[in-house]
Design a binder for these strands. Sequence first.
RNA 1: GCGGCGGUAGUUUAGUUGGUUAGAAUGCUGGCCUGUCACGCCGGAGGUCGCGAGUUCGAGUCUCGUCCGCCGCGCCA
Length: 586
Amino acid sequence: MRSQYCAEVDENNVGEAVSLCGWVNSYRDHGGVIFIDLRDKSGLVQLVCDPADSTEAHKVANEVRDEFVLIAKGRVRLRGEGLTNPNLKTGKIEIVVDELIVENKSDVLPFVINDEKVGEETLLKYRYLDLRKPKSYEIFKLRSKATIAARNALDAQGFLEVETPVLTKSTPEGARDYLVPSRVHAGEFYALPQSPQLFKQLLMVGGFDRYFQIAKCFRDEDLRADRQPEFTQIDLEMSFCGQEEVIAVSEDMLKDVFAAAGHDIQTPFNRIPYMEAMEKYGSDKPDLRYDLAMVDMIDIFARCENEIFSNIAKDTKKNRVKALKVPNGDNIFSKRQMKGFEDYVRKFGASGLGYFQMKEDGLKGPLAKFFSAEDLEQIIKVSELKVGDVIFFGAGDKHLVWDYMGRFRIYLAELMEIIPENRFEFVWVVDFPMFEVEEGKIKAMHHPFTMPSNIDVKDPEEMMSIAYDIVLNGTELGGGSVRIHKPEIQEKVFKLLGISDEEAHEKFGFLLDALKFGAPPHAGLAFGLDRMMMLLTDSPSIRDVIAFPKTQKAQCILTQAPSPVDNEQLKELSIRLRDKKRTTTN
RNA sequence: GCGGCGGUAGUUUAGUUGGUUAGAAUGCUGGCCUGUCACGCCGGAGGUCGCGAGUUCGAGUCUCGUCCGCCGCGCCA
């Protein structure tokens, strides 16, 4: 049907007969001669339909409209002097058409392909038209190349690609599950996997040694610009290995994946312990493309004469006083902007945002009077203040201060436009705590199958885990851990999490059993492929890198999913809806 | 669940203090045009102003409710 792709034709083909297929990108009817830009995945080529060459083809060309599907047969000709188009890869040649076949017509499109201004809602409703844009094709081409590079890298390292079930068992912890009703077992449900976590551990018990999968995962939580209810992980697990082997394999794989996307990245990546990341950047996924680290001020504030601050500063275990220096901030930001900073951090629970300005004659600010001259000097010294600098500080509960000062750090960096573009700054965040306490309840920070590094420590809050996250430019790209492979440790962790023996056996009995039958030490990691593609394609939304994404209300506006179903279907599944109006019929 | 922004021809949008027939660009369409490539020129059609109430002599504009889209918070082991 086709001799080559549109944009593959060039000067070397002059005089040759070609047969090209594609869509009408645009047409220009001059009354006599008609020009058609034919488009396929490779690009554009100009067709010329001149009645002098073929009255038949010209007649057909008269009826052609945008996005008609054509098969054009003709010969390649060099364009005349002054008639070339430097904006087109094929701009030096054109196709003199002697046979034009309209393979399929097209209704008028709801929007013009490549029109950058069209709203996303319209684009998503007609996503297949949006995908015709060369820009869309490039994104999915890159995604394909990256995925294949990951496969090849892992294959070369002896990993076996194994598919794990999509219909699986609902688990109590973690995100909300998507449930699938069982027809055969009335009243019972499968769950879609939040990740293949337990199955990949079972594959290690099965002796496969190294497993990977490009796995779809499902989490029924609210959406964000970088979160969809179904997403893809590059998931891997390896036996008789610890953190270092997983990190080494991951770095190798990432190097290949980024190379496939045209980026040379340097390994090994830097590492930062979790606590240091929190103390310096207020985040477990710090963006290290810029510094702007927080400075600890708690000692100095403990000595100040303002009771609110000194009281906060006395409890160094629970509280923090953190400062962010803005070089030359006094000259960059207006009074009004600085007031706005306080409003910004208040949204995240801050009760206020103090500041000092570094003037010619020393530190100035509403709180300066509470500090001794020596301590003011000390503030200047520890934060290396120069005239014109401004220093902001937050005080209070450490988790709160880390959070809002960490967000403020990013906010400032964006405002000051100090974030370098076209740079990939990878960092491994390591040495995570095993648990976090929320509203008095103890929760696994990573997941309950993570190996503690100090299982015998008395205070569970002091327990650390062998877990690691890979962070790129402030985005969590992936995470993993060394897993528990001994049943007694797993049972102990369940106990600490407040999961009873009974519940543990009901929900995870199969895992506890498996651990009893010679489970090897094993460790693994999973990457968020969609987020990786966002970064590789510089896309502002995860929807851009997913062929058929869902809206923020988790709907697909193309297919109208989710949708009501017949009562008959529900009956088979032994399901009765509370609100009967929601079914389509009966 | 909460906060912010938005919804007006197919598309992108303007619309003042509530006041005449809701305007533009682009797309579409009819005609003309043999070298354009964002072709050009002349003409034409195209609007439940998201939806529903309310206030008013009169609502795109004001009020209330509701739906949808986007961003964020909560949530996301």
